[in-house]
Every structure is written in structure tokens, then in C-alpha cells.
Design a protein around this nucleic acid. Sequence first.
DNA 1: TTGTACGCGTTATCAG
DNA 2: CTGATAACGCGTACAA
Lengths: 348, 348
Amino acid sequence: MNRKATIYDIAREAGVSTATVTRVVRRDPHVKEATRLKVQQIIDAHAYTPSVSAQNLEGGGSRTLAVVLPVVSNLYFNRIFDAAYWEAEKNGCSVRLFQTMENQAISPEIVSELLRCRMDGVLFAGSIWSADRDDLNSALQKLGRYMPVATICPDDVSLECICIQSDLVNCSRLPIRHLHTLGHRRIAFLGGSMHSRDTSRRGVGFLEQLRLMDLPDDPAYHVDAGYDMESGERAVLRMLSGLDRSRWPSAIVTFNDLVALGVMKQLKKMGLKLPDDMAIIGCDNQFFCAYTDPSLTSVDLHPEEMARSAVRELLLARESTSSSFAMVREATLVVRESCGAQLGFRKL
Amino acid sequence: MNRKATIYDIAREAGVSTATVTRVVRRDPHVKEATRLKVQQIIDAHAYTPSVSAQNLEGGGSRTLAVVLPVVSNLYFNRIFDAAYWEAEKNGCSVRLFQTMENQAISPEIVSELLRCRMDGVLFAGSIWSADRDDLNSALQKLGRYMPVATICPDDVSLECICIQSDLVNCSRLPIRHLHTLGHRRIAFLGGSMHSRDTSRRGVGFLEQLRLMDLPDDPAYHVDAGYDMESGERAVLRMLSGLDRSRWPSAIVTFNDLVALGVMKQLKKMGLKLPDDMAIIGCDNQFFCAYTDPSLTSVDLHPEEMARSAVRELLLARESTSSSFAMVREATLVVRESCGAQLGFRKL
DNA sequence: TTGTACGCGTTATCAG
DNA sequence: CTGATAACGCGTACAA
């Protein structure tokens, strides 16, 4: 493996100073055409390119944003990462990914890693809501002293950074209201986990909305499952088998579309007709929603837009004084077949 | 936004030399306990961490691998990226993503960007198969002079780098043989594009396999569609509406599972019963395959394993002399319901 | 138009 | 055990 040529190598070989090489590279007009040509030729011959490390050393920032999230292979986070990537790209920045797995809190390791890498900003998404709010805020403050910090968070938290909040109020309200309009009264919520600061808000918000509409908030209608398809399968099975058929809900709202996928599979296996025997509404409006059978009604939190806003604010915050505020992108309901096209009373 | 403390700041404040600060940071045992304590305290107070840029400048490499692919939001590439990330992580390296969109060739810009960033290795996946093989090889060589290069590629190309080849032979053979065993004779292939060097191989291989088994390779059974669900919908519709019902294929193999999703939706819309009226086999064994209705039989190319191999070889190649070889991970068929559990003659 | 010299933050070598 | 000092590769005043 060859050593990369340095500006010195080029300068020496071209018989000029390093300053001139820089000028050629940076297309400085104050260079004699002959000199430029000669230098450029040597540069091409060696495929010379200035080292970013050296440039960063001199210039300060790295023009790199960090995106910290549990797992990119999760569709939801994947979309956030992707959107952040392109928004950063558009502004001449690159993005560095940090996956934290299921760590609930933002670890000291990740904090020091972010500092080490001299990131020009950080975006936290998902799973950083440690049990202890003070710990979290102190970590964010620590980071905030050196780089702008943004987070995509539930709408009931207001951390000391740029908070792009998920519209969890509408995330609960829209499906319930829609189902209510269709005639449903017994509505269940499956998935997520009350143990997670990050996702319990969804369950809580759901119950609030039920009460607001005078609908039964039977605890049996709220199963603490997980975040994937298997969780969905197990959760419905557990819920329905524990309930007398007369008390079955007529509609199920799930934590996300993956859970919905599992729920639908299990219900079909039990011989139910969808959406007639059971209406389903998912969350995240994933790409496959239009292709399930029946197609899946889902809430869109617009994660891409949130990510883009976050990146924009991050980039803006570099210039201005340290900012700390919150903004919300309104969630929307995308209606498809799974909630029942017409009044959806359960037939059985 | 505060300026980050440098090693000089720490040294001055602690009344020691920068060398001593480095020693404390690097846990060098040759430091008096009292000194260590004092220095460490100042370090903590300032949350000091050495700058990676400066470290890289001095040390040479960046311990960062580049992964170049069209789009991470594509499930297939997402899995490659994710696997590469963790394999690199396991070896103390980080990964930097470059998305090229639909650029068919590996552009000069990306090459110089990779050089600029002094990557310790590159993994190319998808869509780099420029029409001109020589251009490609010269780009790879150019890079290869400075860093190990690996690529996840079709099994009929052998580039001058580490080639982790997709097992496209079995990718065609396995579904066809399986369908043949089930009694199918008229088998169609939908999706991909003959215009893309990267994906045409799939179509070609498919035809080869058909001939090998003395099955009809009716050109009408091969529709050049795209890579997503909409493409699948349109492609079946186009194929079937152009064919007398007696000549309809009894089974369809798709370029990938997304196309299969579209195909299944369209077929249901046309009133066909799956898998009785039409068998389907997809490719990539995506997470949703077990949750479609019917569940989707699919070929698994094991992209994660390919990515992991690539990263491992990349890391190995740094030490040794420039290596250039090829290896294949055998594809497997994951049988589910969509191909028909029993002999699958078309009923109509 | 071109060159010199210094600073950027770190590590490593070599004296002490 | 500790401190100078020289790289590392580059950009940029400032001088010529």
C-alpha cells in the first residue's frame, strides 16, 4: 500500500513552494499559468488530495454531524438517518452514525467519543431518555458546551437542547377519533413498553385519548408488547385468549407497523376476517403499508421531516448563540383498508 | 459554543509539559501518582479529549472504512451497511457511508473524496458496474494503490480487488428447480433491468437455467421492470394483459421481495388466488416475507455475511500485500407458502 | 507572482 | 519520572 503524497512531495517535485501548491489546489487566480500547469500535472500524477485530517486540524470544525440512534436497521431510524444524511449533504456536511443498541441512557462513552471526533453537531434519536432526567440534561449540557445538540423526542419532554418533538398527541388522537367515527367503541393498544421512557408516552397518551372520548380504558386492552412482528403476534394472542369473546375489542391500534404486521398475521391464523372482524391501525406509515392485505391504515409522524429540521437547526445553531427550543411536526393519518372502509362494527 | 481545550491548555494549567498530559491520557505507568492525579483533575474539569484529527495527522490511518452504495434506505443495502458497521466496530473501526444514488459508474468525485478522507479501506456495493470495464478497473486500481478495496458484486465479474460475489447462479437455479419439482413449467421473471450491468446478470442467469431444464424461455415471460413494488404491479399487469390466458405462466420469480410485494397485490386485485393460481418466489428474504399473505418464499443471498467478509478482508489486507481475489457465499432458498405447498399446477 | 514561516493539536524521541 | 522538541500535512499571513 503506497503512502499518500503530501503537499511537500508535490512542492519538491514541482520545484515550487507548498504555498504555491495550495494555491493551485484552491484555484487561486494569482498563479502564473505555466506554474499552474506544471504543478497540476504533478498533482494528477500522484492523485494528490489534501488530507482532511490536516485541514480539520487547521480549520477547526470537521463539517461532520453525528447521528446517534439505537439501530439503523430499524425502518424508522433508517428513515431518520437517511433524511439527515441528505440534508447534511445538501449543506456540504457529512454524517457519522453511532448505534447505541438498546442502551436506554446516553452513555459517557458516546459523549466522549463525540467530543473526541470534534463533531459539528449531534442529533439524538430514540432511547436516550434515561430514567434520570438530571443525568440526561447534564450530559446534554456537557455536549452543548462544545457543539449544537438536537434530539427527536416525545412531545412531553423538553430537554435543554433543540427538541424536535414527535406529535404523539395526534398519534393517539387521530386513530382513535377515526375509529370512533367508524363506530368502534372497544379499542385496544398493543406494543411498546411502559418500561421505556421513550415509548411509554404512547401508551399513556392512548389511554388519555380514550378517556377524553368516554371510551372504556379496560387495562386488558393495553398489552405491553415490544416493537417487532413477533411481539405483535404474541401480544394479540395473549390479549384475546385472556378475554371472553364478548369483550374482545373491535379495533386494535399498534405501536408501529411492524407490530401491526404480526397482529394481522395472528388474527388471520385465528380465522378472523380483516378488517371486518377487527380493524387495525398502525404507526409510521412504512413503505409496505400499501401492500399488506388488507392495506394498513397508519399514522405518519414524518420522521424524515423531523430529521431534516434537526439538521437544519443544528447547522444554524453553529453560527448563533446556544439555542434551546422545541418544535413539533404534526402527525397525519393515512387511511387505507385495514380500519374498515365503512362503519366498522364487529360482525361476530 | 466553547472552544475545546487543547493539550496545551491542560499542560499549562497543570503546570506540566504536554508530554506528561499525553502520558496521563494514555495511562502510561511512568507517571508519579501525584502528578497523574493533578493532571487528571484538570482534564476532567475541561472534559478534555485528544482531537482525532490531530491524532490521525500524526498516526497515519483514520481507522475508518468507507461503504459506498446507492441508497441506505433500500432494505438490501441497509443490511449490508448495518453488518459492515458492526463488523468494523468489533475491530475498533468506524464506518463512513457514501450514497451514490443511481449513478451507475463509480465517479471520479467519489474516488477523490475517498482519498481525501484517508479511508483505511472501501467497500463498494451495487451499481458501480460501469458500462466500461476498463474505466472501472482503472478507478479501482487508483484507489487500490492507497487503500484496500472490496466489492460485493455479481458472480460473473472479477475485478482487481477483493470480490465478494453474490451467488447469482443459485439465485436463479434454486427457485426454478424448486418450482419445477412442484410441477411448474411456465415460469416468468419480473423486475431488474437489462440496462444495468449490475442486475441484468439476474435476468440472463434466469434464462440460462430455464434452458438447462428444458423449460420454455418465452421472451414474454421476461419483463424488464424495476426494483420496487410499483414496478412489480405494473410489470405483472403488462405481462399478463399481453398474453392469452392459456399462455399465462404458472409461476413468477421476481427480482426482489419488493417487486414480489407489488406482484402479489396486483394479482389479488385481478382476483387470482395465491399460491394456487400463481406461485411466487422473491429474492432477499426480507423481514416481511414471513408476514405477507401468503408468506413469501425467497432466496437469501446473505448480504450480511458478505458485508462482514468484506470488512474482515479489508482489515486483513491493510497488513498484507495488496490482495485481489474472489469468494462466494452460497445462496439459499427459504421456502414459505407463496410457491405452493404441494404440486402447483395452475388450476384455471 | 512566489516563497518563508508559523500555527493547528498530538505523539514520539531523546535528554535530563 | 519529566520536559523539550521535532515531526505530521496543511493553510495563511506576510514578506519579497
